[in-house]
C-alpha cells in the first residue's frame, strides 16, 4: 500500500509539472503575439562606425564582416517582397562589412545586386575594384549597370574598356566596349579599343573579325567627317550618302566589310552600319529609298 501511495504521489507531481509547463508555454505564446504589435527592431536602427566595430571585434574583423553581411542578407530577404521598401540601411551595411574586411569579394559581387539604387551599386563595385584590381568582372558589371539602367553608353564603354585590360577577360568585353563607344559617338575610342585587342589577341578568327570591325569604324569615321563638312558648307545635314555624292564630297560609298551598307541616321545625323547589332536600320521602304538615292 505504501508503494501505491508513492505512485500516486509521483503521478500528481508529474501532472502538476505538465500543468506548470503548459502555463509557461501559454504565457510564452501570449508575449510572442504581443511582440508582433510592437515596432520592429530587427532592422538596423543604427550602424556602428567601422573603427568601433573593428576595435570590438578583437582582431576577428573577418568574422565581424561575416555577421554584418548575414545581417544585410537577412535585411534584404525579409523585405524584398514589400513593394516600395526603401532599404535605407543596405548601403551602410555593405560598406561596413567591406570596411571591416575589404578582401571579402562576395560582398561586392552579390551585394551590388541587393542595393536599391544603381548609383549605390556602382559605388560599391568601384570600391571593390580598388581591392581587386585584377578582376575584370567588377568593371564589367559597372559598365552593365551604366548601360542597362542609365543608358549611359559613354560610361558603359569606359568601364568595359577598363575591364578589357584586365587579365583573363573574355573576348566579348572589348568587343562590347567598342560597340558602346560607337553608340556614344566616340569613334576614336572605339577604334582604339579594337586596335588594342587586335594587337593582344592570339586567336586568328578574332583577329580577322576585329580587323574588319576596325575597317568598318574607320570608314564610318571618314563618312562622318564628310557629313560634318556638308553641314558646315550647306547649313544642314545630308539625309543620305547619295547627298554627299551629289555634292561631290564622296565618290562612291565604301564597301561595308560585313556585307551591309552605311546610312545616315536621321535622329542624330550619325553614320551607321546596318550590320551593327545595336543599331536600328531604317524601315524597308526607307531602305529602298536610301539605296535608290
Amino acid at each position: 500500500m505504501k508503494s501505491g501511495k508513492k505512485i500516486v504521489h509521483h503521478l500528481i507531481l508529474f501532472v502538476f509539472a505538465i500543468f506548470l509547463l503548459s502555463v509557461a508555454a501559454f504565457f510564452n505564446q501570449k508575449i510572442t503575439d504581443l511582440r508582433k504589435t510592437y515596432p520592429s527592431f530587427t532592422d538596423p536602427v543604427f550602424l556602428p562606425k567601422a573603427e568601433a566595430l573593428r576595435l570590438v571585434s578583437l582582431d576577428f574583423e573577418g568574422l565581424a564582416a561575416d555577421l554584418v553581411w548575414i545581417k544585410g542578407a537577412l535585411y534584404f530577404g525579409s523585405h524584398y517582397r514589400q513593394r516600395g521598401f526603401r532599404f535605407r540601411w543596405m548601403e551602410g551595411l555593405l560598406n561596413l562589412a567591406t570596411d571591416l574586411d575589404p578582401l571579402y569579394y562576395d560582398i561586392y559581387w552579390y551585394g551590388s545586386s541587393l542595393l536599391p539604387e544603381v548609383h549605390q551599386s556602382i559605388r560599391l563595385l568601384k570600391k571593390g575594384m580598388r581591392y581587386f584590381p585584377d578582376k575584370w568582372e567588377l568593371p564589367q558589371m559597372i559598365g552593365f549597370y551604366y548601360l542597362y539602367y542609365l543608358h549611359d553608353y559613354k560610361s558603359a564603354a569606359k568601364y568595359y574598356e577598363i575591364a578589357s585590360l584586365k587579365p583573363g577577360r573574355p573576348p566579348f568585353v572589348p568587343s562590347l566596349a567598342s560597340r558602346f563607344y560607337t553608340q556614344a559617338g566616340e569613334l576614336d575610342a572605339a577604334i582604339r579599343v579594337l586596335k588594342g585587342f587586335y594587337e593582344t589577341t592570339h586567336r586568328k578568327d578574332l583577329k580577322k573579325e576585329f580587323a574588319l570591325r576596325i575597317t568598318q569604324l574607320e570608314q564610318i569615321k571618314y563618312l562622318q567627317a564628310l557629313v560634318q563638312a556638308y553641314r558646315e558648307s550647306f547649313g544642314a545635314y545630308p539625309a543620305t550618302l547619295k547627298d554627299l555624292q551629289r555634292r561631290g564630297l564622296l565618290n562612291a560609298p565604301p564597301r561595308e566589310p560585313f556585307g551591309g551598307y552605311y546610312f545616315i541616321d536621321p535622329k542624330d545625323h550619325r553614320v551607321k552600319s546596318n550590320t551593327d547589332p545595336l543599331v536600328t536600320p531604317p524601315k524597308k521602304k526607307d531602305e529602298r529609298w536610301q539605296k535608290a538615292n
Binding site: 576577428f60 561575416d66 571579402y104 562576395d106 552579390y110
Partner: peptide, 22 residues
C-alpha cells in the same frame, strides 16, 4: 550559419572556427 550567407560557404566556417578556437 553558412546557409545564411551568399557566396563562399567556407568563409564563415573558417572565420567562426578560428574565433571559436581562440
Amino acid at each position: 550559419l553558412n546557409q545564411m550567407t551568399v557566396g563562399d560557404p567556407t568563409k564563415i566556417i573558417q572565420d567562426l572556427g578560428l574565433a571559436t578556437l581562440s
